[in-house]
Write a protein that binds this DNA or RNA. Sequence first.
DNA 1: TCCTCTCCTTGCTT
DNA 2: AAAGCAAGGAGAG
Length: 292
Amino acid sequence: MRHVLPIAGPLDLELTLSCGQAFRWVRDGEAWTGVIGRSECRVSVAGERLAVTAAGGDPGSADLARYFRLEEDPAVHLEHAAELRGLPGLMPLLGLRLLRQDPWETLASFVCSAAANVRKISGCVEGMAAAWGVPIEGSPRRAFPGPDVLAGVSETALRRHGLGFRAPLLLATARRIAAGGWEWERLRRAPIEEARAALTDLPGVGPKIADCTLLFGLDRLDTYPVDRWIRRATLELAGRRHAKDEELERWSRRFGPGRGYLQQLLFHLRRTGGPLPALRSPRVRRVRAGAA
DNA sequence: TCCTCTCCTTGCTT
DNA sequence: AAAGCAAGGAGAG
């Protein structure tokens, strides 16, 4: 099945699919191939449109547009962050799009992200899919297994796919969710603190992984996951030497309800570039606490 | 209660 | 070759 879809605003597949939000996309020349739900998709940009060829079940044009957020110009997420438009190197990154991924796959992927790198996370996710996922007709790849499936495997089996110390954590989380009473749809709309609390109650899920799940899997752009890169970037922007992650998250709220998108841009910017300039003038910077 | 430190796997890099 | 590093979290003290 083939789809050709209109795109609102810029779309940079390289940035979008390799920036560390999704882990099952691989480059294939000018195109990219990945798994969305129960189908394998090969996508490429042709002029102002996105061309998608799907194997297995057809995702449908509506779900594809939704996945790639094609109806939204990413620039709208920066409406409340005008002060950052002058940040060197930021504007060329606006082809990066936050994907709307499956929340369970997002959660499981980021449980694997602790003390790992993108390559390692991809290996874990792809390994679990190959071992326990539903086959995709016309493709060697498989869908990502649901929590009910992972709940039935052994810790040892998970370790064979490189999960290491994360294996018992993901297993426990899969079992918790498979046991029932878990409502992803409720978390999409719940107050952000309530949604965070529900997620951080799961084994292997702290604030950072909870926020990534909300941002990448539950369409909650009003989150600002603080990892080691964002910690540095935000400290620099705020002109601070030290601050707790929670404090940095609060500071980020000045960037509005789309700050999750900004977080993703800053993650890429700080990782590929150097330190960021402070937004506040040094003259207004707070003096050290305790200075007499 | 809150903070800090350490450990936990793995594989690639220096 | 040994140490460092990579989208952190849990547990101890």
